[in-house]
């Protein structure tokens, strides 16, 4: 078998492993990719992430539901855990660090975890504060880690009301930080009103937004690679 055909087969295996939430297939595929000398970034983006894109589509078509998405995410992580140590960091002009968490009063973190996953995939350093996070902790963590991005998540309206306070405090100390908010009660209008830079509505939208973001990073990477040739 030619190298190209073998590569295609391995990438396909990673993609299908994610779609069929088969952790073992993802691990096998990742190991094969490393053994065959495939660029780990390529294995991640053209294999694992390409699978997750299809999962996002299946979710929209209501063929997949929340349990399937989460199992797919676990399969993706199984492959990612093997590939990531071999990745070179992407040079995209960002430091590539993000602070993420579910705000005080809220323990719903499925959407947050999906967004976190896509940041992991994109090679960001993720500072995950978990759920029910006190508002000031976001500000402190951003200052401590000098992250480019802060993501705030809430599923309940009652906890969402804490968001503008955090945004204001962070922007006061460091106006360049990008802030994304997400969760069921948020909207584009609210994001603007709160002074946030982006928003994602719920777990599926968060996934879509995060995939978009990763696809964008991928495009940057490809353009850069094309230039350097």
């Amino acid at each position: 078998m030619s190298d190209e055909a073998k590569k295609k087969e391995i990438l396909e295996k990673l993609r299908n492993g994610v779609i069929q939430y088969d952790e073992d297939a993802c691990k096998e595929g990742a190991q094969e990719a490393l053994d065959a000398g495939i660029d780990p970034n390529e294995a991640i983006f053209d294999g694992l992430v390409s699978g997750m894109e299809e999962v996002g589509r299946l979710f929209e078509a209501q063929e997949y539901f929340v349990p399937e998405i989460l199992m797919c995410a676990d399969a993706l992580y199984a492959g990612l855990a093997l590939l990531k140590p071999h990745c070179k960091a992407m040079d995209i002009g960002l430091k590539g660090a993000v602070v993420i968490g579910t705000v005080e009063g809220d323990v719903h973190d499925i959407g947050k975890n999906l967004v976190k996953m896509m940041f992991d995939v994109a090679g960001f350093t993720v500072y995950d504060l978990g759920r029910d996070v006190p508002l000031d902790q976001f500000v402190e963590e951003q200052l401590r880690t000098d992250s480019d991005l802060v993501c705030l998540s809430a599923m309940m309206t009652t906890s969402m009301v804490g968001m503008p306070k955090v945004i204001e405090k962070i922007k006061a100390k460091n106006p360049d930080v990008m802030i994304m908010i997400g969760g069921a009660p948020t909207s584009k209008e609210l994001a603007e009103k709160f002074g946030a830079d982006g928003y994602a509505e719920d777990a599926s939208n968060a996934l879509k937004e995060a995939i978009k973001m990763v696809s964008f990073l991928k495009k940057l990477r490809d353009e850069k690679a094309a230039k350097s040739k």
Partner: peptide, 12 residues
């Protein structure tokens, strides 16, 4: 199930 916490799916 109550002792497993490491994965995404454990949330369900």
């Amino acid at each position: 199930s109550d002792r497993k916490k490491s994965k995404c799916i454990t949330r369900l």
